[in-house]
Amino acid sequence: MLVLLQLTFLFSSVLLLSSTGFAAVSFPVTKPVPRATISTLAPYTQFARAAYCPQYKLHRWECGVACNALTSFQPSLVAGDGNGIQTYFVGYWPPEKTVIVAHQGTDPTRLVSDLTDMNILLDPLNDTLFPDVPSNVKVHDGFRNEHALTAPIILAEVKKLFKYRHIKKVTVIGHSLGGALAELDALYLTLNLPANTSVHAVTYGTPRVGNLAFAKLIDKMVPNFRRINNKKDIVPIVPGRSMGFAHPRGELHILSPGKAIFCPGNDDAINWQCQIQTVPTVLRGSLVDHLGPYEGIPIGTGACT
């Protein structure tokens, strides 16, 4: 109950801002997601779940259900404090021959995490971390500032694993605030790794990270991008579009167990089954759905068992 009350406070400032925004008259129709495709997302969901677990468990890769579902994963870096810097881990996942980078999401009981979410000014990206990105590309100031604390460390670890494992694929994953950090990582790694690197991103219940120019840049630079929304989760509709925020493409909206759709475009506002039509304001959404279950897998502070 405490978590739910704090999340309600966290998003109350954007309560009425999510139902207005960009026209969407040219979007194509939604497409059902085959059950077989939905089932392939389970490992990524477990990685997002694991990011909430205590660091001593992640170092040993003994974090309960999530780690047991991914026994071949080999963590090489675990860091953060869950407050000023969200816990994150990097390692090698043999089945997909990819480096995994996963970020913890918001723990509303930790003050600094809440303040990071609340700092919703739009500012340009750091041109040292994001070279040659136009100045009209802007992102959530709190997300940008936290991402900068870990980006060079993560890049160095990814490069080390690429060299050691002789691979060129990295997959970034996160839930909630962790998804926002993963979204920024996806662009950052694309810009700072060799051109033949394959960068993939899978995020869950992610708030809007930047403006439409940022969303379009993600669309262009990170084509292997999937953002997963669960039922009536309110978090993906904040900060509001009237404040200048927009999502990139790649929405997969879980409607019920075993049933999901692909939603086209940036912030699909025309198809009734997509997130911002299902949840036009946070008053019509659900905080519980933010924590899942995502096809039977819960994600959040209480899901590390």
Rank of each mutant, 00 (worst) to 15 (best):
70 L>K: 10
140 H>V: 06
140 H>K: 05
105 G>R: 04
112 V>N: 05
199 V>Y: 06
99 V>C: 06
154 I>A: 04
193 L>W: 10
124 P>F: 06
176 S>P: 01
114 D>F: 07
210 G>R: 12
202 V>F: 15
157 E>R: 15
104 Q>C: 10
150 T>G: 08
169 K>F: 03
169 K>W: 02
128 T>K: 04
95 P>A: 11
205 G>K: 13
109 T>G: 01
183 E>M: 13
74 Q>S: 12
177 L>D: 00
117 D>M: 15
184 L>P: 00
123 D>M: 08
188 Y>C: 01
160 K>E: 09
88 Y>C: 04
108 P>L: 04
69 A>H: 09
142 G>D: 00
205 G>R: 11
99 V>A: 06
78 V>T: 07
179 G>C: 08
107 D>W: 09
140 H>W: 00
88 Y>G: 00
135 S>G: 12
131 P>D: 02
125 L>R: 06
195 A>I: 13
166 H>N: 15
205 G>T: 09
186 A>I: 02
112 V>G: 00
71 T>I: 14
72 S>Q: 15
179 G>D: 03
139 V>C: 10
167 I>R: 11
117 D>E: 11
119 N>L: 11
197 T>A: 14
135 S>H: 14
68 N>F: 08
100 I>T: 08
109 T>E: 10
108 P>K: 04
202 V>E: 02
96 E>D: 12
69 A>V: 08
109 T>I: 10
88 Y>D: 02
211 N>G: 09
79 A>K: 12
75 P>I: 12
193 L>V: 09
85 I>T: 15
72 S>L: 14
147 H>Q: 13
124 P>Y: 08
148 A>M: 11
160 K>S: 12
75 P>N: 13
